[in-house]
Design a protein around this nucleic acid. Structure first.
Length: 210
DNA sequence: CGTGAGATCGCCT
DNA sequence: GGCGATCTCACGT
């Protein structure tokens, strides 16, 4: 399959190929289609300190070690789901975090799932995106290129240009790698925030500032 | 508009 | 036991 081959390369080369692609989710509630406008690449074991795969394969990240074109869905901050497209090949971990998309159809269903949001913000941010599309842990590991899949990826024609920057929320040794890719001038691209170490115990952080 | 805190839990050390 | 590939709300400017 052609799309599978396009997803099987080095993760930072594959990532921009997802810009403009459609993500289509199907459930009993209906269908939502969104156009991807922002992604981040995460590399393999022992090569990318910012990646979940850095310390090797575990039950949680095992989808990252499988073939390209599958979903890697993880739970974070005790409440949010985020979805990645794996890049393979088998045994070589890699994944592209889908950070933001523009909802193209199924807007009413997405609004219901994200009540209170403006249309622009429906899928602007990785956790907002999974909520708008109804993606959760049940989608982990599924094939995004199989026609009967509840979550489908359809690549767009290759792009001429895109923008890049360091990744959002990644600190430490991986902070400088410019593996965030996005479509410039798209309103649905998320607000860029550099990594912030989380505040420690309240008293401590106050002392540290003085 | 920017900053800061809280929510909340699975994973890995 | 610590902390995270986040979001939202409250509050000050």
């Amino acid at each position: 399959m052609r799309a599978r081959r396009l997803l099987r390369g080095p993760v930072h080369q594959v990532a921009p190929r997802l810009l403009g692609a459609q993500l289509r989710s199907y459930s009993d509630s209906g269908e939502v289609v969104a156009r991807i406008v922002e992604v981040e690449a995460y590399g393999g074991a022992n090569e990318d300190p910012g990646s979940h795969a850095f310390r090797g394969q575990t039950p949680r990240n095992s989808a990252m070690f499988g073939d390209a074109g599958h979903a890697y869905v993880y739970f974070t901050y005790g409440m949010h789901w985020c979805v990645n497209v794996t890049t393979g090949p088998v045994g070589s971990a890699g994944a592209v975090l889908i950070r933001a998309a523009q909802v193209q159809s199924g807007v009413e269903l997405a609004r219901r799932r994200r009540s209170g949001s403006t249309d622009r913000d429906l899928a602007r941010g990785p956790a907002r995106l999974t909520k708008a599309l109804g993606i959760d842990g049940r989608h982990n590991g599924i094939d995004l290129l199989a026609p009967e899949s509840p979550l489908l990826l359809q690549l767009a024609a290759p792009l001429i240009s895109w923008a890049s920057s360091p990744r959002t929320g990644v600190g430490g040794a991986g902070a400088l790698i410019p593996w965030r890719f996005y479509l410039a001038d798209e309103p649905a691209v998320s607000a860029y925030r550099p990594h912030q170490p989380r505040s420690r115990a309240k008293g401590v952080s106050r002392l540290a500032r003085e």
